[in-house]
């Protein structure tokens, strides 16, 4: 992970339901399915983060991609991706993550007298804390990890049941057939007519 990579990205830089991006029946179904799957699983233990660290990072991830009328970071199991990442593919960032969590505690105390954890704040208070730190490297790190955990391949431990892909309408098939979208389909129909 590097911020330059993110900079580069921005600079440098069948008919029917299949391509209707947000099929809400499908999404509701996914949400119900995911909630069930999460509920049925015994809470797995974390391999790298302590339970307290995981709670804090999880709470951040859940504000970055909240559960709305569709699943969010919670249902996608983003925290399990992050825990796994800290032991392997992003382990160089673990120290920064821990330093950031220390700083987070200070910010939490400033936000609400007597509060000792970000997770214990109300969502609006959590958002206020995050808005105050959204330019920091630490927020950038958790933001990045949350997006990868939500939208990366499920093999990395997040994006459970491909929830992240379902909510945005990404269909990860190895082969696609044209037409791909509404406008090229319209063109094909026009030609046939």
């Amino acid at each position: 992970m590097s911020s330059t990579r993110r900079t580069f990205i921005t600079s440098a830089a069948g008919l029917g339901a299949a391509w209707l991006a947000t099929d809400w029946a499908l999404v509701d179904d996914a949400l119900a399915h995911a909630a069930k799957a999460v509920a049925q699983q015994p809470a797995p233990s974390f391999t790298t983060l302590t339970a307290a660290e995981a709670r804090e990072v999880d709470a951040m991830a859940q504000r970055i991609l909240p559960t709305t009328n569709t699943p969010g970071a919670k249902e996608a199991g983003v925290i399990y991706f992050i825990d796994k990442a800290m032991a392997s593919f992003e382990k160089d960032a673990l120290l920064d993550l821990r330093k950031g969590l220390t700083d987070l505690r200070t910010r939490v105390a400033k936000q609400k007298k007597g509060a000792t954890s970000f997770a214990s704040l109300a969502p609006t208070e959590q958002d206020a804390v995050l808005r105050g730190m959204e330019k920091t490297d630490f927020f950038g790190l958790v933001h990045y990890l949350t997006m990868v955990g939500m939208f990366g391949n499920p093999s990395y431990g997040g994006n459970r049941d491909r929830i992240g892909w379902k909510i945005i309408g990404f269909d990860p098939q190895a082969v696609h057939q044209p037409p791909f979208g509404y406008y090229d389909a319209q063109l094909v129909r026009g030609k046939k007519a």
Binding site: I9, A13, A21, T68, H143, M147, F151, I168, F170
Partner: peptide, 29 residues
Amino acid sequence: PIFYALNGNKPGVRNWGAEHKRFLEHNFS
């Protein structure tokens, strides 16, 4: 998907939270 989540939104617009999520859901496709 990851690229889009990180960089799909307009420059200067907050790229996290419920609004951003809604943006991704509606606009990715």
